[in-house]
Amino acid sequence: MTSVGYIVKATIDALRVAARNFVKPERITVYYPYEKLEYVRMRGWIGLWTEKCTSCMLCARICPTNAIKMYPAPNAKRYPGVDYGRCIMCHFCIDICPADALYPTDIKELAWYNYREMIYTPDMEREPPKVEETYKYVKVSIKYENGIPRKIETVK
């Protein structure tokens, strides 16, 4: 009858663990639009300083998804524009740029109404896009205290 003993004991044990978690929840939920998780690093939207760009086209060539198109400019140069419908935020283009003309940002909350708006021309790449903050938010991050993850507000 060891198996009956095991069944009863293990059932009670499982219920006990669940009850302990019920009494002392270890929540890690982030209420997204009101709280935003702060990652230390985040690869996001790609900016361009056109004045630094030498039109070497390396960025367009290394892009794994062919997201970069070179747009002719009035000064007979060509500048890159990113199609964010294709971009996978690998930041290869930034890594390859010999003139540091492309710069990384951590803007990752990008959404558009239609696909045409996703195609950024060099002019649009100059300024980071305006992210509409519909809600006031606080930045939070997750820290471990006594081995339990805690969500804490980080002061800006």
């Binding site: 499982a14 820290k143 081995g147």
Partner: peptide, 28 residues
Amino acid sequence: AFYEQTKGFLQYLEKKIDEFVRVVVKNP
């Protein structure tokens, strides 16, 4: 910060995996 955070995570992971075994795997 990664080194500290990872150690905290591992400690929590081991605790939680233990509970996982008790609730799911060892649960008859």
